[in-house]
Design a protein around this nucleic acid. Structure first.
Lengths: 195, 195
DNA sequence: AGGCTAGTGGCACCGAGTGCCACCGAGCAA
DNA sequence: TTGCTCGGTGGCACTCGGTGCCACTAGCCT
């Protein structure tokens, strides 16, 4: 992802790389938007035209991410268990090639550890939750705003972010495997808790 | 909660009421910190000494909230199922008298609908997650940073916020009942999903 | 009285975002 | 070539959240 050469794709990628690098080395709050803009060779004003927020520079083309997730969910086999479908969709959307993994790690480390980005992430997650809740609603015939669709969306997202966290903590782990471990626990009502 | 008369408790409560009222009527972003301070009869500078952030004025004494949750979890019967303990703790911490319910509704509506507050809430939730994860770690003998404690903390919090959302959507619903509905689904692996 | 302390307010500053306008370059018509 | 529009850019000034600093006041103690 984020490596498409759409019209004016190149400068955006430059900004994103500069931002990630600066934030990772000096901390999100300690880097001003001016510095990111300078490092990317554009003006501060243009930076805020590319990304509505300093935080948004960390998330690549997130709208495409969500769109892809939605596509996967819509294309899923109708008979398949809902949680399995959601797990596969999460796994596939986050299936990066080995070359892109370092950037993903850098990005996720920032999002999960920097308070400002942690806060901002809730707004991005809400878009994901909407898409997942709609899928659950389609699968069960319930209202997307009802308890079950919302709950499944929120819990699966919780599983996904938890998987990301444990994946980050272990340099050698595999993201897909962590996702499955988390979803398996969730789907079975946390059997590892015992009683 | 938040109705204790601790030293200098009164002015803080005035600020909180003014903030809640203004934010609810005109929207969080449309109200400046100056306006809240004026409405509460204090200076802007003092406002930011009471609350480190405009958003924090919406959450009452949240630290006490978390402390109470932690106490309940520590005092729980050791043999009891972990999820049941967590559900009870959430329910008890959020068990308000009828007189305080309107304020709670106002507060939660703001937190769940205003984007800026939605983002900020993630930082508060992280404190809750820490406490819950530690409880799970104590109960299972695992590392609090491991997958299971983190996952249970994140999923139960997801259940709680979902319960809040459905509670908000129905004027006549009972928060405790919504919490139990959500936790029951979660603990049983979402039986309502069917297969 | 003098002195200490806690709480307050005012002031100046930084940084994120935004609206506005001026500029520049590519295309296109005459 | 000249003149035109037009999308992308940069500069500028402004609002607002948040912070550091200092001066002031009210108690309170001896």
């Amino acid at each position: 992802m984020t490596s498409t050469d759409a019209p004016t794709g190149a400068p955006r990628a430059r900004v994103e790389r500069a931002a990630l690098e600066l934030f990772a080395s000096r901390g999100f709050d300690a880097v001003t938007a001016d510095e990111v803009a300078d490092a990317a060779g554009i003006s501060r004003r243009t930076f805020f035209r590319y990304y509505p927020t300093k935080a948004d520079a960390v998330w690549g083309d997130f709208a495409a991410h969500v769109a892809r997730l939605e596509q996967l969910l819509r294309a899923a086999a109708p008979g398949r268990p809902v949680l399995a479908t959601i797990c596969s969709a999460y796994a596939e959307v986050n299936d990066y090639g080995a070359a892109d993994l370092p950037v993903l790690r850098q990005r996720m480390r920032l999002i999960l550890t920097e308070p400002a980005l942690q806060a901002h992430s809730q707004l991005r997650y809400a878009e994901i939750d909407r898409v997942v809740a709609e899928h659950v609603a389609r699968s069960t015939g319930e209202d997307p705003a009802g308890l079950l669709p919302r709950l499944v969306a929120a819990s699966t997202r919780a599983a996904a972010t938890t998987a990301f966290a444990t994946w980050l903590a272990d340099e050698r782990s595999d993201l897909g495997r962590e996702l499955h471990r988390a979803f398996d626990e969730l789907a079975a009502g946390f059997p590892s808790l015992g009683g």
